[in-house]
Design a protein around this nucleic acid. Structure first.
Length: 493
DNA sequence: GATGCCGGGGG
DNA sequence: CCCCCGGCATC
């Protein structure tokens, strides 16, 4: 893409590289980078992205005004601009108070749930002071600095005395902004940044590793970086990932999903529909099929509450889990992140709901066939959210939100080519608890069928397995399955 | 004998 | 769940 052109469209000048900060990600997102640089120079954004090449991948750096922020990494060629921006936004949106107040994840609305590791919600709390709060969705609104100052997105500083103090997880959002003059540029900048995140170029399906990358590619990646990500997800290299959240939040990966989903939720997004649609230029069809119904599922751990209205689920979270007054309509927005939207296919509503409760499946249907494209649930989910009808949205959205999470990639069980076989043999997908367990879950719903043909041992494969390829001396190079003396998942037949 | 991996079991 | 391993089938 032509970054210059985009920046010109924004009407701001491309500036030089920043000099401080160390948030980094990898991805192919130079336009955002350049645009962000310009935006920062114009005071629109408090942070910028820079990039540099590193071992065939691109290292991006989000620079904030002061101090270091966080660090993320992205695998080679497996990134998308959406992930990039969402990741950046997530960090940028992290408020300093959120660093201190565990569980206040209320502003992390647009972090990608599909590519953000499970510890994402903790990242923002680990960010050192100095990170400026940036709301890309509302570039004109006030942001908050860690040093106690508030600053408008265009750079005007406001002392705490002048600015109203804000609850940690509450960011005031004008329902009817009037972008004009300078604000137009701000909005334009944010629009470009945001719309780029949904660019087909950066979200090209071919970047879906498990579905489209030929076997030699991922095989090579496995060899080159055995312990690193090869599944298109990317990990934050934040220093400390062990900080738990309190009060006990839902599973972090669930929360991530809720971030993304809620970002387009009409009820949960206080921005109002116009700003959301303006910034994302992507009117999301809530119901692509007549049989699809949006439900709201509580993400609180061990809570499977599913309600049909966002207000209902908000009230549920607020009262049941957050312990707030039931008769109070006040919402600090925190509950937004303890529930998520799920799309329920009304044709199989009973099935979908049964998946949310520990009831044994009784419906026996023909075993579903999962095309390879569906094997990568996160991507599909992403597309689904972005409004592009997925191949089987009902299957995807019926699954519990906990199915989206960080993917451990050092397990060969993720082998995409062996997916169907693994399902057919009833083998659990250990390495991909998120994506593939979704499939398996659905599969289990529709096919309580017992293991096929017990006793029929699979014929020995022709391909060399890890044992032969690497040898006993390099046992740590084996795929997990081989190490466990299971069917090799790296070199499938 | 080496290899592949199913089934079972420990933590 | 993650991991290991006995044991069997196959090469």
């Amino acid at each position: 893409m032509n970054s210059k052109r985009v920046v010109d469209a924004v009407g701001i000048r491309v500036g030089g590289a920043p000099k401080h900060g160390d948030f980094s990600c990898r991805g192919d997102f130079s336009v955002v980078c350049d645009a962000s640089v310009a935006a920062v120079e114009n005071g629109l954004l408090p942070a910028v992205f820079t990039r540099k090449t590193d071992m065939g991948s691109v290292l991006y750096t989000l620079v904030v005004d002061s101090g270091s922020v966080a660090e993320g990494r992205k695998s080679n060629g497996l990134s998308s601009g959406g992930e990039m921006l969402q990741g950046m936004e997530k960090v940028a949106l992290s408020g300093p108070k959120d660093q201190r107040e565990a569980g206040s994840t209320g502003i992390l609305k647009r972090a990608s749930p599909t590519h953000c590791p499970s510890h994402c919600p903790t990242i923002h709390r680990q960010l050192p002071d100095g990170l400026m709060l940036l709301d890309i969705r509302n570039p004109g609104k006030r942001v908050e600095l860690a040093n106690g100052f508030h600053v408008a997105a265009h750079g005007q500083m406001v002392t705490p005395a002048e600015g109203q103090s804000l609850p940690s997880s509450y960011i005031p959002v004008p329902r009817h902004r009037k972008p004009s003059g300078h604000a137009d540029k701000e909005v334009m900048a944010a629009t470009v940044l945001t719309s780029l995140s949904t660019s087909p170029l950066v979200l090209h399906p071919s970047s879906t590793p498990t579905a489209a990358v030929p076997e030699p590619a991922w095989k090579e990646a496995l060899s080159a970086s055995y312990s690193s990500s090869t599944s298109g997800n990317w990990s934050w290299d934040a220093s400390d990932q062990s900080v738990p959240s309190t009060p006990s939040p839902p599973l972090s990966n669930d929360a991530n999903k809720s971030f993304l989903l809620s970002s387009q939720g009409e009820d949960v997004n206080e921005d109002g529909p116009e700003s959301t649609h303006f910034l994302f230029e992507d009117p999301i069809p809530r119901k692509r099929k007549n049989s699809m119904k949006v439900m709201f599922k509580c993400l609180w751990k061990n809570c499977e509450k599913v309600l049909s209205t966002s207000s209902g689920i908000q009230r549920h979270v607020r009262t049941i889990h957050l312990g707030q007054m039931s008769d109070s309509d006040y919402s600090d927005g925190e509950e937004d992140f303890y529930y998520t939207e799920i799309e329920v296919n009304m044709d199989s509503l009973s099935e979908g709901l049964s998946s949310l409760t520990p009831t044994s499946p009784t419906t026996a249907g023909p075993p579903p066939v999962f095309p390879p494209a569906l094997a990568h649930i996160p991507r599909s989910e992403h597309i689904c959210v972005k409004g592009v009808p997925g191949d089987a949205p009902s299957l995807l959205s019926q699954s519990a939100p906990s199915t989206l999470c960080h993917i451990r990639t050092d397990h060969a069980y993720q082998g995409p080519l062996s997916h169907v076989r693994a399902v057919s043999t009833g083998e659990r997908r250990q390495a991909v608890p998120g994506a593939n367990s979704t499939v398996n879950k659905t599969h289990a719903l529709t096919t309580p069928a017992p293991k096929p043909a017990l006793g029929t041992r699979r014929p020995r494969g022709e391909a060399k397995k890890c044992r032969k390829v690497y040898g006993m001396e390099k046992r740590d190079m084996w795929c997990t399955a081989c190490r466990w003396k299971k069917a090799c998942q790296r070199f499938t037949d």
